[in-house]
Amino acid sequence: MTSAVAVDVQNLTFGYVGGPDVLHDITFRIAPAERVALLGPSGAGKSTLLLHLNALLPEPLPLPSDDHRTAVTIDGLPATPEHAAEIRRRVGVLFQNPTDQLFGATVGRDVAFGPLHLNLDDTEIQARVDQALADVNLEAFAERDTARLSLGERKRACLAGVLACRPGCLALDEPFANLDPRGRRQLAEILTGFPGTLILATHDLALVRELTDRIIVLDNGRLCADAIAEVVLDDVQLLQRHGLVA
C-alpha cells in the first residue's frame, strides 16, 4: 500500500449535462488514514462525490470557465485530467455494482488488470494478485470464471482488484448492499484491516459505527452534517430528518 492519502474538497458544485446540480457547495477535508462514512438517502449525491475523488467526472470535459474540478484535491494534486492517472493510483474506488467492475474472464486476470496498468513486471503483478486474493479470502478463486461467482464473492473479487493497486485511500460505494450477514461480516473484517484512508458510502449504520470515526451526511446534494461518528449516530432526529432511519 502507498502511504495514506489526504482528501480535500472545497466548494464543490456539480451537475450532469442537461440535469440539475447534484452536488451543491460541498466542502470537507479528510486527513490521511482517517475513516469516514458518507451517509445520505438514495440520490443524495454520494456516488457522484466518490467519482469526483477519482477524477472520473465530469463527462464531457468542463468548459474553460468551469473551474469546479479543481475543487477536489488528493494529496495536494488537483483532480484534473492531467493528474488523473496519479490520483487513480492513490485512490481506489469500489463501485456499487460488482458486475461492472469485473471485466476479466477469471478472477485472477481481473485482479491483475490494475497492476498491469501500473506497468509492473510479471513477478510483481503475480505477487500482488496472490496477496490481494489472500486479503479477501479468495486464494482458491484465481482461475474461477467471474460470471460464476456469488454476489459476496464478486464484491470481494472487486475489492481484491482495487487492493492489488495498493491505493492509499479506499472509496467504497455501498459495499454492503445486497450482501447476506456473513458476506457483510467478511467484508467488514477486510476493511477493518485496511490501514489507509477509508471513505465509505453506505446505509448500514451498524457497520458505520464499527468501521468509521467520522460521518459526513449528504442530502439532496448538500452537506448537512460533518462530525464524529458517535455524535451523528446518536442524533436520532438528524438521522430521521435525512431518511437514515425510519
Binding site: L51, N54, L56, E59, A84, A85, R88, R89, G92, V93, F95, N97, D100, Q101, F103, G104, G108, R109, A112, F113, G114, L116, H117, L118, I125, G161, V162, C165
Partner: peptide, 23 residues
C-alpha cells in the same frame, strides 16, 4: 449505461487505452 459504468471502472484501475493481456 452499463458501458459508461464499465469504462469508469476501467479508468479507476488505470486504463489508459492500451491493452495489456495477462495469462
Amino acid at each position: 449505461d452499463r458501458g459508461h459504468r464499465i469504462h469508469r471502472a476501467m479508468l479507476a484501475r488505470g486504463w489508459d487505452g492500451h491493452l495489456r493481456p495477462w495469462p
